[in-house]
Amino acid sequence: MLRRYLLRQLVAMLPTLVGITLLTFIISHVAPADPVRFAAGPHATQEQVEQLKRYFGVDQPLHLQYLNYLRGLLGGDWGRSIRSKQPVLADLARYFPASLELVGAAIFLAVLLGVPLGVVSALRRNSLVDNLARVVAVAGVALPAFWLGLLLQLTLAFQWQLFPAVGRYSPELGRPAAITGIYTLDALLNGNWTAFSDTLRHLALPAFTLAVNPLATITRMTRASMLEVLSRDYIKTARASGLAPWTVITKYALKNAMIPTTTMIGLNVGWLLAGSFLVEAVFSWPGIGLYTVESSFYSDFQPIMGSTLVIGLTFLLVNLAVEALYGLLDPRIRYG
């Protein structure tokens, strides 16, 4: 049943996906900044420009260009970066794991801190913890992530030298042998503990910076839905029948309260991929954010459209996965 449901959802995603490609196509093909001229250089002859136009396929009518573009996307040809001269898909494959690592670590931190904080502040309303959670929640969404990142660099990296300020690994140690492209994981898989702690230390500051915003929303959401669930009759019944308070909270309340929180986490993955643009720029973290921002300085459109597509696709898939998770959390939910 679940499989059929997910398949149908995947099909339902198709118009949105086509819409996204149409949007990226329109943006990249009506660009006034002429990437062909840029690639050709200032001294190119008209003939060379025409030749390049044919090479990039921009000499055809628009609807044909779009069909070519779609055919290319499906066939794995996502265009070519004018700056790096590499196929965009190859570039993305190189940069995406770094972003995935960063966003994954940030979500992990946010859930690890946010869910307990939300639960405790719901159980102990108006206590010190609750007020602390409120400050975190309010400040967390108002802090500009890039500024917070700079402050952390200033204090923890420059002044106290606890963490490295930029990059993914120490050059003198070298990067761990690539397996997944997620360096902390690669180091673990290689059993290389020095590299693991090194990459983890590099990951710490950017991941924490990125985690602050979702930490705030997850804390708030967990607190609100815990309060909601705790007032239900089945909780009273469970308590009245003498179950241990811990069991009531974890098995009865939290499990049900996690449904809205899970939605929040799913939405956050998409927002974080976008938020990582700024954080990656601050920490020189070589993910798709940095790739896109750097491409933007060269009016290099194909990489930007490629990143937009990858992020849109990831966002849709994550939300699909979240819907599948609901069934695990609440067995009453049927995928009809």
Binding site: T16, P32, A33, M305, G312
Partner: peptide, 25 residues
């Protein structure tokens, strides 16, 4: 609905970066 779906499926900042580049910073 379909049109807004497309926009809402993309995190805003990413799309606005693309649009800014199209128009010039």
């Amino acid at each position: 609905l379909r049109l807004t779906d497309v926009f809402l499926a993309l995190p805003g900042l990413v799309l606005s970066i693309a649009i800014v580049m199209l128009l010039g910073p």
